[in-house]
């Protein structure tokens, strides 16, 4: 997905700059997340402010990553627009991925 993401600091903040996260981008998303996790990252904030649409293939990439993290790691979802937030809600994945309105809120929650 390079160069469509920006990764900064700890927690890692992954800012997706593509308007669509779908099956055509799921493998790249999975690779970026797995690389972060294998690099020792335990907390990741996925900034989805620019993402207008997400499908189940992209969600699968997140599930692969959160399973690889194990029970103590966290992938937070920040700034999700309505269609994306709805996907997490109807799949009940908001019980696995904490959803916050902003990246700052996600970072604060992870620090608490």
């Amino acid at each position: 997905m390079h160069p469509e993401e920006e990764i900064n600091g700890d927690p890692a903040i992954l800012r997706i700059q593509a308007p669509r996260l779908d099956a055509s981008k799921a493998s790249a998303l999975r690779e970026v997340l797995v690389d972060l996790i294998e690099g020792g990252q335990q907390s990741i904030v996925l900034d989805l402010e620019m993402v207008e649409f997400m499908d189940s293939a992209a969600l699968s990439a997140l599930i692969t990553a959160v399973k690889k993290l194990g029970p103590l790691g966290t992938i937070s979802i920040a700034s999700a627009r309505f269609p994306v937030a709805r996907l997490f809600s109807i799949t009940k994945m908001d019980r696995v991925f904490p959803i916050t309105a902003t990246v700052d809120e996600a970072v604060q929650r992870l620090a608490a």
């Binding site: 293939a57 699968s60 599930i63 692969t64 399973k67 194990g70």
Partner: peptide, 8 residues
Amino acid sequence: DRQSIAES
């Protein structure tokens, strides 16, 4: 049980 969640 995260490990039991289906990925697809």
